[in-house]
Design a protein around this nucleic acid. Structure first.
Length: 670
RNA sequence: GCCGGCGUAGCUCAGCAGGUAGAGCAUCUGAUUUGUAAUCAGAGGGUCGCAGGUUCGAUUCCUGUCGCCGGCUCCA
């Protein structure tokens, strides 16, 4: 054992401290402030508890509240505090896992009784009590077998399972007070009193190890922060987010509705929402024409056989509506004594011919492509359609516009030669970039879904996969935004590039997607005649830059907090006469606004302007045109902008020119 | 699909330890004629999600069902 510990600090300076000294000792020797702010240490690249003795030679970095990793440790320790409180109050509870997560932490518990909201308050109070006891989080190294025996004895079967799976010959555990002990890699805070502000937020069900075949546990979610102020701000932010929720705004602004008499997960677009959708479709159609796409229309159903050929049935039978079967066939089966159970089996296995509500548009487009012979000179053929598809999502997953059972994709399929793939993929990405740029959506991430080499669920030749994955990676690269490679995230027929955004409560949604497919052309035996006068197999690219109109508009509502840019606003201007004697001129103004192509309305109610303004403001109408004596005399309008307030009077013609310009360029300003 | 919570007027919500309900906003009517975020008054509006059960009596308690919310699982 060396007689001194040599420490190198981040600035390169070196120190010698007594052997067995900890990072906390080191911090104290540097300064009280640092010691107070210290959360955890990074020692030779590994995170160390502050109290853990340093090795003889150590590069040490003290992590304080400024470091993101420190916050994770802080929240991990908060999770332990939660578990300790739960065990004190409900000793029969069994522990699962309790990691930190974005903005907080959770812990999974198993207990016969469900936790209630009142329990949560009790647990929170007990957490505060334990926190005030100033208990240290103590790290211990134990031998695997001895440790296992101990956890078996205290009756923690899930901990035993984890130890069996994850531990080497030794593992670490952390205690908190005389009772609480947890198999845990750590590190943790030095003491509970470091935890300043926390709140338990919700209870939810969660399968043990995320496996729906295992038992279900109760997960308690919480959040913790370095100060009450930070916590309050975070809670405030959650409140604000609720107001931006597209389900709330969609109702307030009259954009869409879901009616259980129609069915779960089926969006009814109200007139105002329909305008937004229509504008988006016009917008994208312009770019499709520019990029040489052809538009097609196809029906909502197709023969089951079609989807057997494509492979969608039976791979995805569970998430499809069952096939539509004609009456005669049903009667025949009944006459043959077919039971309901048998019928269900036959339907499930696809042994009864029928029609399927289409889960995807590609088979229809493929049949259009194949309805004519093609030469290499024709390629690429780009077929686009705002095609509505139906998927039977699990009921617990449905909600708002982001997860639905019927939706319209801004879909297209490109049939091209293998050589054309890279160029076509980047063409698709360019389109996505234009769309996101126009909308002003910057917070999206790009996910390149690659095949998982271990899995057999993919179809196609490895060489083709390699080529397609390469094309996707290069295209993502050229996009100039950060992207992640995600093995195992590919579609079964090919790699893909996805665009993922977050909603107001932090959930991620996939929007646009570009997928390279070598598989379907083969399944459908597609051909084109090459320059060598021989048949060749085309490659298909599936792409939908918005993903679906439903999800995209849902995300857009939240992105704009309901205040859509002028070109997308369902109502662009509202005319507000001050009194009845201005009605005639106001009607005149309305006519001219509409004549210029604006979506405008007249508020002719006998209310004060303030009242009308308030209403228009809450409806987030971009322009309010106040009409009084002065305006009527001068042929002017007084312009109030929803964001900038009173802009003063101007001639109507001038106003029209300015908004027409903003609309034509799809400006984000108004 | 699973776990938990919730479902009262168009909306947001109150109420009921079991005696068939109330506010604000919205709507309608009247008055007011108004200058940049709510003028005043009056009226109408609910088989308390739906179906069973317990009870003299259920919006309230129980069961089932449908839907919504949070999470889990899934997501071509």
């Amino acid at each position: 054992m060396s007689s001194t510990t040599f420490v190198t600090l981040p600035d390169g300076s070196q120190r010698e401290i007594p052997p067995g000294a900890s990072a906390l000792d080191l911090a104290r020797s540097i300064g009280k402030r640092l010691a107070d702010d210290a959360i955890v240490a990074r020692v030779n690249g590994e995170l160390y508890d502050l109290a853990r003795p340093l090795p003889p030679e150590a590069r040490v970095e003290i992590l304080t509240t400024r470091d993101p990793e420190a916050l994770e440790v802080y929240r991990h320790s908060s999770a332990h505090l939660l578990a300790a409180a739960v065990l004190e109050l409900y000793p029969e509870t069994k522990l699962g896992i309790g990691p930190p997560i974005k903005d907080g932490f959770y812990y999974d518990f198993q207990r016969p009784e469900p936790f209630t909201a009142e329990d949560l308050a009790k647990i929170e109070a007990r957490m505060a009590e334990i926190r005030d006891r100033d208990l240290p989080y103590e790290r211990q190294v134990v031998e695997k077998q001895a440790g296992l025996a101990k956890y078996r004895e205290i009756g923690e079967p899930m901990k035993c399972e984890l130890i069996e799976e994850r531990a080497g010959d030794q593992f670490t555990e952390y205690t908190l007070g005389p009772q609480f002990i947890d198999f845990c890699r750590g590190p943790h805070l030095p003491s509970t009193k470091k935890i300043k502000a926390f709140k338990l937020l919700s209870i939810a069900g969660a399968y043990w190890k995320g496996d729906e075949n295992r038992h279900q546990m109760q997960r308690i979610y919480g959040t913790s922060w370095y100060s009450q102020k930070d916590l309050d701000e975070h809670l405030q932010k959650l409140e604000e987010a609720k107001k931006r929720d597209h389900r709330v705004l969609g109702k307030q602004l009259g954009l869409f509705t879901v009616d259980d008499k129609v069915g779960q997960g089926l969006i009814l677009w109200k007139p105002k929402g329909s305008i937004i959708r229509q504008e988006l479709q016009t917008f994208i159609s312009e770019h499709l024409r520019r990029q040489g796409y052809s538009q097609v229309f196809t029906p909502h159903i197709g023969k089951l056989e079609l989807y057997k050929t494509s492979g969608h049935f039976p791979y995805y039978a569970d998430s499809q509506f069952p096939p539509l079967v004609d009456r005669e066939q049903i009667s025949q089966l009944a006459a043959d004594g077919c039971s309901c159970a048998h019928l269900a089996n036959l339907l499930g296995s696809g042994e009864i011919e029928g029609f399927l509500l289409k889960p995807m548009n590609c088979p229809h487009h493929i049949r259009i492509f194949d309805s004519d012979p093609h030469s290499y000179r024709d390629l690429p053929v780009r077929l686009s359609e705002f095609g509505t598809v139906y998927r039977f999502e699990q009921s617990g997953e449905l909600g708002g516009m982001t997860r639905v059972r019927g939706f319209t994709q801004d879909d297209a399929h490109i049939f091209c030669t293998e050589e054309q793939v890279p160029q076509e993929v980047s063409g698709c990405l360019e389109l996505v970039k234009i769309i996101f740029g126009t909308i002003g959506m910057k917070d999206y991430r790009v996910r390149v879904g690659l095949r998982d080499p271990d899995s057999a669920k993919y179809v196609g030749e490895p060489e083709q996969w390699d080529a397609a994955e390469k094309a996707c990676k290069e295209a993502a690269e050229s996009l100039g935004v950060p992207y992640t490679l995600e093995p195992g995230e590919a579609a079964f027929y090919g790699p893909k590039i996805d665009f993922v955004v977050q909603d107001v409560i932090g959930r991620e949604w996939q929007l646009g997607t570009v997928q390279v497919d070598y598989q379907l052309p083969q399944r459908f035996d597609l051909n084109y005649t090459g320059a060598d006068n021989k048949p060749h197999r085309p490659v298909m690219i599936h792409r939908a830059p918005f993903g679906s109109m439903e999800r995209f508009v849902g995300v857009l509502i939240e992105h704009f907090a309901g205040a859509f840019p002028l070109w997308l606003s369902p109502l662009q201007a509202v005319v507000l006469p001050i009194s009845d004697r201005h009605l005639e001129y106001a009607g005149n103004v309305l006519e001219q606004l509409r004549g210029a192509g604006l979506r405008a309305e007249l508020d002719s109610r006998s209310e004060k302007v303030n009242y009308k303004i308030r209403e228009a403001q809450m409806q987030k109408v971009p322009y309010m045109l106040v009409i009084g004596d002065r305006e009527a005399e001068q042929g002017a309008v007084s312009v109030r902008n929803r964001k900038h307030g009173d802009r003063g009077a101007m001639p109507l013609g001038e106003f029209l020119e300015s908004v027409k310009g903003l609309i034509a360029t799809r400006s984000q300003e108004d």
